[in-house]
């Protein structure tokens, strides 16, 4: 593990832990953006800069802003008062999360992972990505486009004030 990776991992984990313990919802969302920044840095480190910047573009500027708008549109009196932000069955939730983590760790250390790394001549080029997208993956692309359209229309209809 190199120092750079350790620093980025620390950033990601700080954001993730902050998002699970902070009290105010807006603070949680802001620490979510820290997680995304860390992840974007990891993507760039893994020679996928296009996806890293796309992650920032999609998540930080679109999804996070959407979440923030929703947070502001739904003011929750119960949670912003003194009631604990954690649900009643939180112990059980922690146990489930912990056991999943233990299971994943067990699997990672049992799996026969290749320790080496194949050298790339250049980072994944956007051009080849686009060519794959337009030849081999054109059907998934169309499906995704359809899904996005459906999701957009659905979201608008669900969130409309007077569904009529």
């Amino acid at each position: 593990m190199s120092l750079t990776f350790a620093i980025i991992a620390a950033i990601v984990l700080t954001g993730a832990i902050g998002l699970s313990v902070l009290r105010k919802t807006v603070h949680c969302v802001l620490s979510l953006t820290i997680v995304f920044f860390g992840l974007a840095m990891l993507y760039i480190r893994l020679d996928a800069p296009f996806l890293g910047f796309a992650l920032v573009l999609i998540y930080v500027s679109a999804v996070t802003i959407l979440i923030l708008f929703t947070v502001l549109l739904t003011r929750n009196r119960e949670i912003e008062t003194d009631v604990s932000p954690y649900s009643r069955g939180s112990i059980a939730g922690l146990i489930v999360g912990g056991s999943v983590f233990a299971g994943l760790i067990w699997m990672i250390y049992r799996a026969p992972l290749s320790r080496g790394i194949t050298e790339l001549e250049s980072p994944a080029s956007v051009k080849s990505l686009g060519e794959r997208l337009m030849t081999e993956y054109v059907l998934p692309l169309e499906v995704i486009a359809l899904l996005l359209t459906a999701a957009m229309i659905g979201a608008v209809i669900v969130a409309m004030k007077d569904p009529g």
Binding site: A9, V12, L13, A16, I17, L19, S20, T25, C28, V29, V35, L42, I67, T70, V71, T74, N76, I79, S84, P85, Y86, S87, G89, S90, A92, G93, L94, V96, G97, G98, V100, F101, L104, I105, I108
Partner: peptide, 21 residues
């Protein structure tokens, strides 16, 4: 790191009360 992130996300989903969280 990804396993840690996944379990943290699971914990957040199960533990927090706010729907957005």
């Amino acid at each position: 790191l990804s396993a840690l992130l996944f379990s943290l996300g699971l914990c957040v989903t199960l533990v927090r009360r706010h729907a957005i969280l």
